[in-house]
């Protein structure tokens, strides 16, 4: 059974004009968001994106943009309580990040 999260939320953007068709985004994406079509990357499953940021950090042409982060409510709460960005550093007894 394929698990799906909320639709229409990802911050992922692809600038097809910059894409050189190297295909590294297809290799690093853990959820098969991309395909290569006519030597250009294309987003085929946008809602599967979990914003890990692997595609954007590995894109040599900076054709991909995403606001990366961990999809972790605990991290969001931590950040909100400390007034920072979401952070996994919940201290020694943290139960996340495994």
């Amino acid at each position: 059974m394929k698990l799906r999260y909320l639709p229409d939320v990802t911050t992922l953007e692809l600038d097809a004009g910059k894409c050189n068709g190297c295909g590294i985004c297809l290799l690093v994406c853990p959820h098969a968001v991309f395909v290569l079509e006519n030597k250009k990357a294309e987003i085929v499953d946008r809602d599967a994106c979990m914003e890990c940021g692997a595609c954007a950090s590995n894109c040599p042409e900076e054709a991909l943009m995403v606001r990366p982060g961990v999809g972790c409510a605990c991290a969001v709460l931590n950040g909100a309580l400390r007034g920072t960005e979401p952070t996994c550093d919940c201290g020694e007894d943290s139960t996340c990040c495994d």
Partner: peptide
């Protein structure tokens, strides 16, 4: 259940913020 998002392998930060 909401905190289990951090252990899951497919939730995005934008989605988690939205549901929270």
């Amino acid at each position: 259940g909401m905190n289990f998002t951090g252990s899951s392998t497919y939730t995005s930060l934008s989605g988690v913020r939205k549901e929270m």
